[in-house]
Amino acid sequence: MRVGVVQFPGSCDEVDALLAAERAVGAGNAELLWHRDRDLKGVDAVVVPGGFSYGDYLRAGAIAALSPAMESVAAFARDGGPVLGICNGFQVLCEAGLLPGTMLMNVGRRFVFRQVELDVVAADTAWTRATRRGQLLSIPAKHQTGRWYAPDETVERLVADDQVVFRYAAGDNYNGSSDGIAGVCNAARNVVGLMPHPEHAVDPLTGSADGLLLFRSPLEAAGVA
């Protein structure tokens, strides 16, 4: 299995995502995809990484959602390909209409870094198959515009359709997201977005290895693991 990580100008965590993917799928099996290229190089899964794509000018993720690479990623997602959006990547996927909801400024209006606990709500998506429902994952979150928001009726529908993938554990929803939601998936369950950074939780030496489960999940979907 090969994983592609989209690189925009202003991406920050693309190399971290690449290294995290390699830990899961093997060295040499992940590569960066340049934002101006439509060619996804035949990868089997795509990660849209964190950072400040195009400086987050206009609105976080808005310009990146219109990039040539994202056109191809959208087509890949419609064909059922696994796509993971992390932080800014989650914002990009929402802006691209691939995931429900939108991102607002944190309630405290500040950038906050904090190691948070994530509660796995749905363990049957392309990116959570290696986890268990109800499992708590220790993963860092770091953002200023990470308050996931959707109108109440949308939240109710997402809950009913089991499209809520992660919630912040009690006390950890510092950004004020609707219903404590930290991550969601699309109806087909192949596209997942979350605000915290699983690529920064792949080694106990740097804090936690819980995030590795997300990167291993596409392997299970593909029947490799």
């Binding site: 971290d16 290294l19 950038f111 740097t206």
Partner: peptide, 30 residues
């Protein structure tokens, strides 16, 4: 310091508040 990102680049073994000095892996995986 929680207004700053201490972990990007995947080298940070000791973050602010964990030890008297910060510790980075060199070169680190990246």
């Amino acid at each position: 310091f929680e207004q700053y990102d201490p972990v990007v680049q995947s080298r940070t073994v000791r973050r602010p508040g964990q030890a008297d000095a910060a510790v980075l892996m060199i070169p680190g995986p990246a």
